[in-house]
Design a protein around this nucleic acid. Structure first.
Lengths: 250, 250
DNA sequence: CGGCTGATTGATTGTGCTCAATCAGTGTGG
DNA sequence: CCACACTGATTGAGCACAATCAATCAGCCG
């Protein structure tokens, strides 16, 4: 469970204790929480955050029914949230990539309603929520930014809702790929060469499809020249047509 | 656009200018925003709110792409939110009953991403968001309550997501009915005798089903003795079995 | 009365699920 | 070191649930 080995293997070319860098040095600065605060306020924000050890694949950030104490900013890797019903079947409720905030459910109940586990070796910043609230009262722009983040979460859920209603399986897959590509692009990565951090099972579960269907659609998209798929590596060859599949906006 | 006639026709037995009462007199007090604030703080909250005229069925609270300025607390009636895609088809994204807050999308974009229209004659309280933010900075409990409300919205979306993935049409209908019953109960109304404020079309759209399917399931549920349906009046006869349909928690 | 919208019911089709088999990759233990 | 088991992914065949197309009916308003 040691040191920062995992992180090193993940952030290629920056072997120097990356998990002790400050928000200032973080490449996610422009899309993460610090976005909202000035340089001197940033110190206060950093004071309340914990940058924990890197987590191995499959470790939990929190589990459903845990007391709600913190939200988490993903620094590297990827996280999925899910709930397990009484009958034991799992429902994946979201995927979180670097720069995104996990755990904002649970504020109202004081307990988490989802569980969050890493999909691959990941590092996260833990932000105790009560202290974030205090700080938000003092820094209006931070308060607004946090409201804004939650609002964006709601918006994303709306889009997902729309996707799941307009039920075509093709649309769902296409849309997920585009979404991940967009989010990658936002943090300066390729907008067409993506590496899916989650399994086909997770994708199927998230989109309300059977694994077999996901698999079939991936191969068909490939045959149609829309994608180049190799396991979890996906290249979007014809974004236009892919969007056209479900008439999404490019 | 006429006095408080509409409201009168809606809040039976209280014909006296109900829209000028304060939060103190509002029956929704225990579940609405005022929940979080003390008596003297309540005055400040009331100062920033506008209790507008009652709205007729079909009037808009706001439209997609309108500048985001306020959130709205539903006082009476019911509101639906929806988006319209470029191709013109509508997607209903939510139903809001008295005591619930509409319009929290749009914080991040400064513009609304959904439209909100009344499903029947309704009255709402408009709360300018910038002033709510100011006030939230000064009243920590209000800030927390608002975070909490947004969190609850996210939670509800999670549940919806789960519902739409676990795709059985029966489950979806059952779940919606239970949800509405629960929300009615929370404001002191019957937990089994409900009046659906929305059309079958809205229900179908919201749940990602065809209208015909909704209709069929209503009649089948009735044949099975789970419901007594008469148009938009629905009585839940066997809540246990209804939950069992989709193995929901009662 | 005639036209409209909302709701219900019937007949047919199709998309995606289920069941089942195969295959590749990975880790385990003899 | 290799056989074996196990998980994740892919492909095929058949079936079921819900969509679609279509017709009818009730209520409402001009």
């Amino acid at each position: 469970m040691g040191s920062n080995l995992y992180l090193v293997s993940n952030t290629k070319g920056r072997p120097t204790m990356a998990h002790r860098t400050s928000c200032n040095d973080c490449s996610l600065n422009p899309i993460c929480l610090p976005l909202a605060v000035s340089v001197d306020e940033l110190d206060q924000l950093e004071d309340i955050m914990h940058r924990g050890r890197p987590l191995k694949r499959g470790e939990h950030l929190y589990r459903a029914s845990d007391a709600f104490e913190s939200v988490f900013a993903v620094r590297s890797g990827a996280v999925k949230t899910y709930v397990v019903s009484e009958e034991g079947d799992e429902q994946v409720t979201g995927f979180y990539l670097p720069g995104e905030i996990v755990g904002m459910d649970g504020i109202s109940t004081a307990h988490h309603v989802t569980s969050a586990k890493t999909l691959e070796t990941s590092s996260v910043c833990e932000i105790p929520f009560s202290r974030l609230e205090e700080l938000s009262s003092k820094i209006p722009s931070l308060q607004h930014h946090f409201f804004s983040l939650m609002s964006r979460e709601i918006q994303a859920d709306r889009e997902l809702h729309m996707l799941l209603s307009k039920k075509s399986a093709d649309d769902r897959i296409a849309s997920l790929l585009i979404s991940i590509a967009n989010r990658q692009k936002m943090r300066g990565l390729s907008g067409h060469q993506i590496r899916l951090p989650m399994s086909r099972y997770d994708i199927a579960n998230y989109l309300g499809l059977a694994v077999e269907t996901v698999s079939r659609i991936f191969t068909r998209f490939q045959q149609q020249g829309l994608l180049a798929v190799e396991g979890r590596e996906v290249e979007i060859l014809d974004r236009e047509a892919l969007c056209g599949t479900g008439r999404l906006r490019a």
